[in-house]
Simulated scan of single mutants.
Amino acid sequence: MSQPRILVFGNEKGGAGKSTGAMHVGVHLLHQGHRVAFLDLDLRQRSLARFFSNRQKWAAANEKALPQAFEPFLHAKPADLLHVPEAEAKAAFDRALEEALDGADYVLIDTPGGDHVLSRRAHAAAHMIVTPMNDSFIDFDLLGEVDPVTLDVKRPSIYAETVWNSRKTRAVWDGKSIRWIVLRNRLAQLEARNRRRVDERVQALGRRVGFEVLAGLRDRVIYRELFPFGLTVADLSEEVNPVAMSLSHVSARQELRALMASLGLDQIDADAVLPADLETEEA
């Protein structure tokens, strides 16, 4: 890989699976031998940062050699960036992203469940935006508005407009396009008719505003169970087994591999250099 890639996990709804997706993608890339950096812009929750911190501590305590991602310096107290002038927040982000690009093959950026200047800035710098959603009209609302009578898609959401503006910014800056993927997390139990209805609307909106729709991860206990250790199913082996192994873990690993293959992370064709100025994103 000659140039690093920037992958942004974003939408404006909490609890959709952005951090979970970033964790699994990051560990997968680490096991492929890539250098991975991450920026956690969910400045209060910081689930992604805590996951990788747990990973370092667990590996050290158990004397296990696990590949590790690194976090560039963003701010001594990241939550303070919520209250500083926008110019100061942007400068902190730009410095951190430059550091990440200098030392990584992939830069993963987790964004908060809401609109913030740092989230908009990250979206405009992305090569790929991954938007997780649960298979329900509640989560579909973050992508588009449906008619309450016919369930036809009336218009894209504010978040879809944010991505659209980010794409325009990126095109003006360097002529590159941003690949947008909507990742439909598949719940363990879901009524079939509702699934079909959601699927039809998501596919229709994707054709309208230009995103791809991919199957995501099921709601599996193992994904949550490994979080305190900073591990994913990609780490599990005879040497790394903090939980009892089962056939369900094999299924989870196959599901994860299928997701990574469908994302095609090694085939992204884009140059990653931080724009000198992304001010047009605010226009």
Rank of each mutant, 00 (worst) to 15 (best):
A192R: 06
A22D: 01
L41Q: 04
L231Y: 05
V25R: 02
E212P: 00
E63Q: 14
Q254I: 11
L142R: 05
K77H: 14
L274R: 13
L256D: 02
D94P: 08
K176E: 15
H75S: 15
D139V: 02
F51I: 11
Q68T: 11
I181R: 07
V240Y: 11
M128D: 00
I268L: 11
A59K: 10
P275E: 07
D174M: 09
Q56W: 08
D271A: 15
T131M: 01
I138G: 01
Y223F: 15
N241E: 15
A215S: 05
G175Y: 12
V84T: 12
S251C: 06
V163Q: 03
H34M: 09
H34G: 05
A125L: 07
P78R: 03
A272V: 06
R207S: 10
N54S: 13
K176A: 09
A204M: 00
D42V: 08
S251D: 15
L101N: 03
A87N: 15
R121L: 11
G264I: 04
E255L: 04
Q189G: 11
S237G: 09
S248V: 07
R257M: 12
L231C: 04
Q3I: 10
A65D: 10
I181E: 05
A89T: 08
Q45I: 09
L108R: 02
G216K: 01
H116D: 12
V273E: 13
D135A: 12
Q45P: 01
R179A: 06
F140L: 04
K77S: 13
T232K: 04
F227P: 05
N194P: 00
S2G: 12
R186F: 03
V163H: 06
R155H: 14
M245A: 10
A244I: 06
A100T: 04
A171C: 10
G230R: 06
R170W: 04
G114L: 07
R120Q: 13
E238R: 09
D102E: 14
N185I: 03
H31I: 09
A270I: 02
R170D: 04
F52G: 03
D266G: 08
S53P: 05
V8A: 09
F140W: 01
A76G: 14
L278C: 09
G230S: 12
A69E: 03
M23K: 14
R193E: 05
L82C: 09
E212W: 08
G103Q: 14
S166Y: 08
Q3E: 13
E239R: 15
R193V: 00
T169I: 06
R253M: 05
G33K: 03
M1R: 08
M260T: 08
G14F: 04
L190H: 02
D269Y: 03
M1P: 12
H75Q: 13
F137I: 01
S157E: 09
V84A: 08
H28T: 09
A126P: 00
N54Y: 12
N54C: 09
V250S: 07
M260D: 03
D115R: 11
L48M: 11
L118W: 05
R46V: 13
N194R: 01
S2H: 08
R55Q: 06
H249Q: 11
A59L: 06
L256F: 10
